[in-house]
Design a protein around this nucleic acid. Structure first.
Length: 854
RNA sequence: GCGGGUAUGGCGGAAUUGGUAGACGCGCUGGUUUUAGGUACCAGUGCCGCAAGGCGUGGGGGUUCGAGUCCCUCUACCCGCACCA
């Protein structure tokens, strides 16, 4: 009587066995022997309290890689922890009156229990939460080292202020002019803040991208764009005549990437926030009003798109560097203070913004680049009807000593001359700004600095770390509870013992996640850290392409500089894989409210709400979210189908980098697969033979081919293909049950169980035990492919006539070209299509195909 | 605007990288078991055609004995950045 596999019974049993044997603990470097190391890491979760299907997919992928490496004899580190600081804990505190710490640790406990049920190959002995004082204390020490090294500093600057969360945001956290968490329009405020000097590494962070061969091209490009390196010239336009009162220097400094178009310059434009603009505006009501109008323009995508070019003529003039003429100095709303020098020269013929501006204020347009093949004197800008600036390639014209040169030659020549005349220098500019890390929040890592009335800014001595968060805090009013907590705030100065106050800002939570991988690797032991780093395979969502992944690359370099990590590990993640989301069908009722997919049934005239019969409309399959009511609870799926099925489904239907759609029918298919697998093992004799298989039976060939295919697919992150091969193999095993020798079936099942274990570890243990194995399959070595079995004695070759498949022939694999050709020509179906015509050519690709050309 | 990507049956997708297109799964059709529904199992399923055969990987063109794969060109959609001089 065939038995069924019951995951509800089997899964807890095998998890207990793994735990008892402590199978997933990484070996210390000294115990690892000759085994190479593999550090496999998935982005650690925020402890929201509930696991979602996206987590399941993410961790299932990392688990496949970790198990594969373990089976192949690597010493694997596969840790897990919690990215535990952040706003949701404070929001919960405000809403429910619970302490953020209590809320967070309860969530961690809940999620740890959910994680346990998934049966992941995690080494929990290294678990920590970033809100543990041991962790944030070590982070405070790291901060002090950065301060010592000049990589952390304090300055007053305009910052992005989120009025809802009442905190400062980094540039990376402002999306389309809005706070990344609150969605509130961000305001500009002048505040004194802590910054990390990420710009010191701008060049290195760009250069390092080239070495990251196992990163997605997309992520590397996004980072390169974000850092925004551009080569050009910073130069001065000297004042024509008297310098304006209070103007620093001998002229206006501008940055340009197009020094080849200097002869096309027709105006200078300053940012509304340029220091010269500010000084000119003092006492000038009209200019003040202009600046105010510029500041009022929003920073959203739409506002920028539709913003009218606005200008203000200062009446000042500067000299052209190469020609005896002068240019007007304007103030223009489209010039950003935050990039370059906050001033530009305008070349309307070859820059669209400059052209828009010139047309509006009737400034001259001087074409200096002639497109290739254009006749002499072609108008590409001067004519007032031309509305598009020419930015393509060409030769320089109307440009004195630059005439006739290519754009690249002219750039070099112009820079050489400006440098020779000491008016400027070749410069590289970056878009990247320093990372503002101060947050006016409670639930974060306190910045270990005090302010003393006599000594000023004083770092907290390392021996006094950690600076712990106070427990007695209230969240009844908005703002930072640390700021209001006088008892915590006031302290004595470590230097003079006099009265002092603590820094009340905490660190951006992205600081927490930018070095946790190093902490997992070793705690404080730098030798062990050097052994494990870098992370060999990192797995996570693409939404962190510029935030977390850029910060982590920076901090890894900074840790190299201050001796907390090998400088060679400046790239912390040697391999990166960004997985797609889990989506699910959405439905709405007549009122436009979201309806849970589980409440929908197929009615006679389309989908209806099961309970009421009311019609619903079908929406797109979208990322699971509470607001759209299309989430699927992993716990419910584990209860219904088992963890193995939930895990396998998230990997089976789509390539891992793409989104996968959760469907009920698909999950049921996966559950059927699990039963088919078990049926194959259950069909073996009660005491399977221990005889070695021999010979070259079809089952043995098919099994070794499948093994090789799965091995390669897993290696290349093509998990969906590996799963398809497992399905296929299952069908093969079933068909072979009647006729293959028992020893061959046992061997095939043994290979199968070890492949299956990457994806369905619990079921694989049950299968392994059914084979009479006494050990655990998680400890079984990866099977060797018998290469001899991959080669066939006879091959079936398709035969084409004029490129169309007409027949197939069976020939010995070792047959020579002439024999294959003769066999093909002798085939009756081929002969019919040749139809007596003369054969011009026969192409024989050994082992592949025959093509007869007539 | 700049950058990256995708396009294959009713659906998700596969194709050893230039060599039998559609593996595997879902769905669907027919059958067996079942009191019935469901489950399970068996067979079939790219399109047109009774068949022979023809057509077929977003559109058009090219290279080749042979193209989903390489080249040119066009189109649609998705993602990221965006007044960065």
């Amino acid at each position: 009587m065939a038995s069924r596999y019951d995951p509800q019974v089997a899964e807890p049993k095998w998890r207990a066995a793994w735990e008892e044997a402590d199978v997933y603990r990484a070996k210390a470097p000294s115990e690892a022997g000759d085994a190479p190391k593999a550090y496999i890491l998935e982005m650690f979760p925020y402890p929201s309290g509930r696991l979602h299907m996206g987590h399941v997919r993410n961790y299932a992928m990392g688990d496949v890689v970790a198990r594969h490496k373990r089976a192949k004899g690597y010493n694997v580190l596969h840790p897990m922890g919690w990215d535990a600081f952040g706003m949701p804990a404070e929001n919960a505190a405000m809403k429910e009156g619970v302490h953020p710490g209590a809320w967070t640790y309860q969530n961690i406990a809940d999620m740890r229990a959910q994680f346990a049920k998934l049966g992941l190959s995690l080494d929990w002995s290294r678990e920590f939460a970033t809100c543990d004082p041991e962790y944030y204390g070590a982070q405070q020490a790291l901060f002090l080292d950065l301060y010592e090294a000049g990589l952390a500093y304090r300055k007053a600057s305009k910052v992005n202020w989120d009025p809802v969360d009442q905190t400062v945001l980094a540039n990376e956290q402002v999306i389309d002019g809005k706070g990344w968490r609150s969605g509130a329009p961000v305001e500009q405020r002048e505040l004194t803040q802590w910054f990390f000097k990420i710009t010191d590494y701008a060049e290195d962070l760009i250069a390092g991208l080239k070495t990251l061969e196992r990163w997605p091209e997309k992520v590397r490009t996004m980072q390169a764009n974000w850092i925004g390196r551009s080569e050009g010239l910073q130069m001065r336009f000297d004042w024509a005549g008297e310098a304006p009162k209070g103007a620093p220097g001998r002229g206006v400094e501008v940055f340009t990437t197009r020094p080849d178009t200097l002869y096309g310059a027709s105006f200078i434009a300053l940012s509304p926030d340029h220091p010269l603009t500010v000084s000119l505006a003092a006492g000038n009501g009209e200019l003040e009003a202009f600046r105010a109008a510029c500041a009022a323009t929003g920073t959203s995508e739409e506002a920028i798109e539709t913003a009218e070019k606005m200008g203000f003529d200062t009446g000042l003039r500067v000299r052209h560097p190469f020609e005896a003429r002068s240019l007007p100095v304007w103030i223009a709303n489209f010039v950003l203070m935050g990039y370059g020098t906050g001033a530009i020269f305008g070349c309307p013929a070859h820059d669209q913004r400059d052209l828009d501006f010139a047309r509006k204020y009737d400034l001259s347009v001087i074409p200096v680049i002639q497109p290739p093949g254009a006749p002499e004197g072609t108008d590409n800008g001067a004519n007032e009807t031309v509305a598009e600036a020419y930015t393509g390639p060409g030769r320089v014209v109307n440009s004195g000593f630059l005439n006739g040169k290519t754009i690249e030659e002219a750039k070099a020549a112009a820079i050489d001359r400006i440098e020779a005349e000491a008016r400027g220098t070749r410069t590289v500019n970056f878009r990247l700004r320093d990372w503002g890390v101060s947050r006016q929040r409670y639930w974060g890592c306190p910045i270990p600095i005090v302010y003393c009335e006599t000594c000023g800014l004083v770092p907290v001595p390392k021996s006094d770390l950690p600076v712990r968060l106070p427990e007695d805090v209230s969240f009844d009013v908005p703002g930072n509870p640390l700021e209001r907590n006088e008892k915590w705030k006031s302290c004595t100065c470590p230097a003079c013992g006099g009265p002092a106050t603590r820094e009340t800002d905490t660190l951006d939570t992205f600081v927490d996640s930018s070095w946790y991988y190093a902490r997992f690797a070793s705690g404080e032991d730098l030798q062990e850290r050097a052994y494990w780093m870098p992370v060999d395979q990192y797995v996570g969502g693409v939404e962190h392409a510029v935030l977390h992944l850029l910060y982590a690359r920076f901090i890894a370099r900074a840790m190299g500089k201050i001796g907390l990590m090998e400088p060679a590990h400046g790239e912390p993640f040697a391999g990166l894989f960004t997985q797609g989301m889990v989506t699910h069908q959405t439905f709405k009722d007549a009122a436009g409210d979201w309806v849970r997919p589980a409440d929908v049934a197929e009615g006679e005239a389309g989908p209806i709400v099961l309970a009421t019969g009311a019609p619903v409309t079908v929406g797109a399959s979208e990322k699971m979210s509470k607001s759209k009511r299309n989430t699927v609870d992993p716990d419910a799926m584990i209860a219904a189908y088992g963890a193995d099925v939930a895990r396998l489904f998230t990997l089976s239907d789509s390539p891992p980098e793409r989104d996968v759609e959760w469907t009920q029918a698909g999950v049921e298919g996966t559950a059927r697969f699990a039963q088919r697998v078990w049926a194959n093992f259950d069909a073996l004799p009660q005491s399977p033979t221990q005889m070695k298989p021999s010979g070259e039976g079809a089952l043995r060939r098919a099994s070794h081919k499948a093994l090789a295919a799965i091995d390669q697919a897993v290696e290349e992150f093509r998990f969906n293909s590996a799963v398809a091969t497992l399905y296929d193999w299952t069908n093969t095993l079933k068909k072979a049950a009647g006729d293959a020798p028992e020893a061959d079936r046992v061997e095939a099942c043994s290979l199968f169980a070890r492949c299956l274990h990457l994806f369905m570890p619990h079921l694989a243990e049950a299968c392994w035990a059914r084979l009479g194995q006494t050990g655990l399959v998680v400890n079984a070595p990866w099977p060797e492919v018998d290469a001899a079995l991959l080669e066939e004695d006879t091959v079936t070759l398709p035969v084409q006539v004029n490129g169309r498949r007409r027949s197939e022939i069976k020939v010995p694999a070792a047959a020579g070209r002439n024999d294959v050709e003769a066999a093909a020509l002798a085939d009756p179906a081929v002969d019919a299509h040749v139809a007596g015509r003369a054969v011009k050519k026969v192409i024989v690709v050994p082992g592949r195909i025959v093509n007869i050309v007539v």
